[in-house]
Write a protein that binds this DNA or RNA. Structure first.
Lengths: 196, 196
DNA sequence: GTTTATACTTGACTTTTGTTAGTTAATACT
DNA sequence: AGTATTAACTAACAAAAGTCAAGTATAAAC
């Protein structure tokens, strides 16, 4: 029976989507590097080419940037199981407009673009898996756009609570408000209303 | 000197991103099919797997669906130069949640998923080009999410006018309002305000 | 443990956007 | 051309979300 190491968790996640040979498993094992970050650590910085894509073993992370007034805008929040990076910048290996930051202490598995390319060349299963991850990112953003365009602030909050009920215990409400496209004061009011 | 046929327009567009061999050109020529649609024609239907991705030679098109109240929600509007399809559904060849409709009379070049796969297998340039189109779609939706989350209705309208100044002469304001995530009455008010 | 700083909430008010209903303008039909 | 139909605009009001300025709770620092 497989030990619950970070790599085994990643392998289990990959196997929910594609079938892996023993060679695939060895390649994956060689390509990903485990890292641990304390809370509130900037992991990838804006104006810099993102070096890694990260699989989240534990912890909460976010992508954010500064708007014209110097306020932080949180564009993405994620937790296990899943990957996080500034996707379009990582794929194209061009400067990111976003910072990647750990919100809580985070156990991650990271891989460089170069090693991911090597991995997807050597393993057709991993090529399929990689494509599925980026397709999922397209779907995610199409859906996020749709929700922001059509739902009220309260409806967006309710959907988030259904999909990520634990987020409130781990992520500051100011980040959540920004991610949902509203002010912290508005989220506060909505939370009070929804609670009763 | 190249004639301004639909295929030559597409080739010119592709050449702005990748270099094409003579073989590539021949393959592309064989793979895309020119089609003409009158205005207000449903080209791909929701609940059906999208058959083609379309390169727009002329005309305006949109993606839309019906919400719980039966109202049309326009999630995307496009015009030349560029492609249009329900991306995530087309890539995965699964049922779309969106209708693709011509807003004005539209000249298009279409290609099936099967032929696109064949084309990208035979031509590395077209593989690179294809990837760049899907990467652009990721960037587009990331940016659209950001704008919907952070900009006011008026700011979103102003940005659209800067980027697509001709859209008002070709697309009903009701579609534009829906696309911008507001009601037609709000857009009407904003337009009057911005005009003065 | 007390203090300090930060995060979150609350209330009063303003601004923005949605709603409803009526009017005008544009388009389609015969 | 004249009528019917649909699209777009307007105005008055309601609801939602933002702003500003407190206050309270929570967590960090000493």
């Amino acid at each position: 029976m497989a030990e619950e190491s970070p790599i085994n968790k990643l392998l289990a996640f990959i196997k929910t989507r594609v079938n892996l040979t023993e060679d695939d498993v060895r390649l994956i094992d060689d390509s990903f590097e485990p890292v641990l970050f304390p809370k509130n650590r900037i992991i990838e910085e804006q104006e810099v080419v993102p070096k890694y894509i990260y699989y989240i073993i534990s912890g909460y992370l976010r992508l954010f940037h500064y708007n014209d007034h110097g306020d932080e805008i949180t564009s993405h929040i994620n937790c296990p199981p899943g990957f996080i990076t500034s996707y379009s910048s990582f794929i194209n290996q061009k400067k990111s407009t976003e910072n990647l930051e750990s919100i809580t202490e985070s156990e991650l598995l990271r891989i460089t673009k170069k090693n991911l390319d090597r991995l997807t060349l050597k393993s057709t299963a991993m090529k399929d898996f990689s494509i599925s991850i980026f397709q999922q990112s397209i779907e995610y953003n199409e859906n996020r756009s749709k929700e922001l365009a059509t739902l009220t602030a309260e409806q967006r909050y309710r959907k988030l609570m259904v999909n990520f009920p634990d987020i409130l215990h781990n992520v500051p409400v100011a980040y959540i408000a920004s991610f949902l496209g509203m002010k912290p004061e508005s989220l506060s009011r909505i939370r009070r209303k929804v609670a009763n």
